[in-house]
């Protein structure tokens, strides 16, 4: 066996591997922590090409996981990440995020009017400084059966309406259900006063006694809706769920109730450990380009902050999620309620 070709091949392999490994040292890296669907590969590639950088995307699947990843190493492991408004407070208070230079994110000018007034969005500003920029949202409206409602329901109170006893589908969640009940009782959705808790819980027991059931999965809601001729559904998954029901052949409508719909608003924020803030801001700006934001709607069915959703009119009220007064307390009470405990067992008279 002649040695020469072997040596040649060895050299070729060496030089190729060198060539492959070099850019990792030479090119700047942007570390993005996002939710699945927020940073698709092709869109990331475009960004890398345009800015001549390397982008490293990691994904999370829950708020808790996100908190854990950002808190580790004081935010030093990532440059930019996405969290909802209710969570942002935590990051601002813990000083894990830095104020944004809005002049570096000019695409915010194209965002929907209700998202442009950042001071009006709770949880993303503090002391006049902006810490997060909205990227996508999902509101929780009401889905109703057009055959059973001559007029669309106007309020979430319809879920308590005895006319629809056994025909309502609510969502199995502590936080949102307490917020809705408090809102309907005239209180604040996110700050329930101590003395009001029993009343709100009793109201939820009333809801329990009126609903068919509390669902968890969107597919489950579609099945229940059709099987039990459900009239009204609390759409925790928003427009995605509406689409699923319509695809399944249900004749349904969608409304934002007059007291407003709870809405999850996901925003980009930059960590304290950012390496190149300018580059991180360029990333945020890039995701707000119509061509990128539209893909979010097209591929994931998520609302973009650039184009108005056809399901929501200007006058519709969206209540962006905020941290609640005591999530733990709500969860404990909710577990009693959902388990079917009698009021006298867990509520002070």
């Amino acid at each position: 066996m002649p040695m020469f070709p072997i040596i040649c091949r060895l050299f070729a392999t060496l030089s190729v591997s060198l060539a492959l490994s070099l850019p990792a040292y030479a090119v700047e890296t942007l570390r993005v922590l996002a939710w699945p669907g927020y940073a698709d590969n092709d869109l990331v590639k475009n960004f890398e090409k345009r800015f001549d950088v390397h982008v490293e995307v990691s994904f999370v699947s829950s708020d808790d996981m996100l908190r854990e990843k950002i808190s580790a190493n004081q935010g030093g492991d990532f440059d930019v990440f996405a969290a909802n408004t209710a969570e942002m407070q935590h990051y601002i208070s813990q000083k894990l995020v830095v104020p944004l230079q809005l002049s570096n994110i000019p695409n915010t000018a194209h965002q929907l009017p209700r998202l442009r007034n950042l001071q009006a969005i709770p949880g993303i500003t503090r002391h006049g400084q902006v810490f997060a920029i909205p990227y996508t949202y999902s509101e929780m409206g009401l889905i109703y059966d057009r055959k059973q409602f001559r007029k669309p329901p106007t309020s979430m109170a319809a879920m308590w309406d005895p006319r629809y006893k056994g025909l309502v589908l609510a969502f199995d969640t502590s936080s949102h259900n307490f917020s809705i009940a408090s809102l309907l009782l005239g209180g604040s959705p996110f700050q329930i006063e101590d003395k009001q808790f029993s009343k709100v819980a009793e109201h939820l027991i009333a809801l329990r006694r009126n609903v068919l059931t509390f669902y968890t999965l969107p597919e489950e809601s579609v099945r229940l809706f059709r099987k039990h001729s459900v009239a009204l559904l609390f759409a925790n998954y928003g427009s995605q769920q509406l689409k699923q029901l319509r695809d399944a052949g249900a004749d349904v409508g969608y409304v934002i109730p007059r007291e407003g719909a709870l809405a999850r608003l996901d925003c980009w924020a930059i960590t304290r450990g950012v390496k190149n803030q300018r580059l991180a801001e360029s990333w945020i700006n890039y995701t707000l380009e119509p061509s990128v934001s539209e893909e979010l709607t097209r591929r994931q069915g998520l609302a973009s902050t650039i184009e108005a959703s056809p399901l929501i009119v200007k006058s519709d009220k969206l209540i962006w999620l905020r941290p609640v007064e005591n999530a733990q307390r709500r969860a404990v009470l909710w577990s009693h309620i959902i388990s079917g405990d009698l009021p006298e067992k867990f509520l002070a008279p």
């Binding site: 329990r208 068919l212 059931t213 229940l224 405990d341 009698l342």
Partner: peptide, 14 residues
């Protein structure tokens, strides 16, 4: 008694 629960909202009941 008081520890018994209402279960009508569970699918296995309805």
């Amino acid at each position: 008694d008081a520890n018994l629960q209402e279960k009508a909202h569970y699918p296995y009941v309805f």
